[in-house]
Computed example of a mutant assay.
Amino acid sequence: MPRAGAWHWCLLCLLCLWTWGLCGEARAQGHAEITQMQVERTPEGMLLSAALAFDLPEHVEDALRKGITMHFVLQAQVLRERWYWSDLEMAHAARYLRLSYQPLTRRWRLHISPEPLTGPGQGLALAQTYDELADAIGAMQRVARWKIADSAQVPEDLPVTVQMRFGLDLSQLPRPLQIGAFGRSGWILQMSQSLRLAGGGLP
């Protein structure tokens, strides 16, 4: 038979679904955009800096406060345009973020890692604790000189496009919540932006 802890987790997920079903789609995605994006070409490689602006969707914030961890993914692609075929990906980088609430201490914990936070790569994660949710979100919204490609991957004189994406990773939700979350506006948080660089690193 399933352990008591597993039953408790299942009941919590079902209770969340029932509660959100009653509330309906009262609040959609809300404000979400990349307000600033800059790419530097340096001898070490390409460095991306950006500022994100977003509000957590209603159901996401509710789930966090109920103790359900949320996962987010920040991705960057360096693409070379090809007139005869689809664009060529020259480099790809990802940053994984895990946000959780600790009811006993009433504090928020944010993990950031270059590897998915669901396996052995967790040892590479940087963790920070915050007193307020707004402070944790603020840390997620700042991207400073993130290395997205080595200099050998992208020659400096080559024109490229850098595409940046950020969003909630619904696949990391508990299975019962995944079923109710996909396609519902109260769970949607996605944004993207592209920046074209001419040869030499100039936009």
Results as ranks from 00 to 15, higher is better:
C16V: 11
H8M: 04
E81L: 05
W85K: 12
A91K: 06
L48G: 04
W85L: 13
A6S: 10
L14Q: 01
E40D: 14
P43E: 06
K66S: 02
Q102E: 13
L99A: 04
R107D: 09
Y130F: 12
W146V: 03
S171F: 00
H59C: 06
M37K: 13
E115H: 12
H59Y: 12
A152R: 15
V73Q: 07
E81G: 06
Y96P: 01
K147Y: 07
Y96E: 03
S192L: 10
Q122Y: 07
S194G: 13
S192H: 11
W146E: 04
V39E: 05
L197Y: 07
A26Q: 04
Q102M: 14
D87C: 12
R82W: 05
E40C: 06
M90Y: 14
D150E: 12
G119H: 07
S151Q: 14
L126H: 15
S49C: 02
R175P: 07
H31I: 08
V162W: 09
L47M: 12
W108G: 08
A76E: 11
Q77S: 12
L97V: 07
H31C: 10
Q102A: 15
C16W: 00
A4S: 08
T105S: 15
A51L: 14
K66E: 05
V160E: 11
L12K: 05
L14T: 00
Q153D: 12
I188Y: 04
W83Y: 08
I137H: 09
I148N: 10
H111A: 15
E156C: 11
S185D: 11
L52C: 02
L97I: 08
Y101F: 14
G123C: 06
F54C: 00
L56S: 10
P159N: 00
A144M: 07
G201F: 03
A144W: 12
L202G: 06
L170A: 01
P176C: 04
Q36R: 15
D62M: 14
V78P: 10
S192N: 14
R82H: 08
V143N: 03
R95V: 08
G24N: 02
R41V: 07
L158D: 04
A32W: 02
T69E: 08
L88P: 06
S171H: 07
L189P: 06
L14I: 00
W146Q: 05
T42M: 11
C23S: 05
K66F: 04
P120D: 13
I188T: 13
I148G: 09
S49F: 02
A134F: 12
C23E: 07
L15H: 02
F54M: 01
A198N: 09
G24Y: 00
Q128P: 06
I188F: 04
G180M: 06
L168W: 06
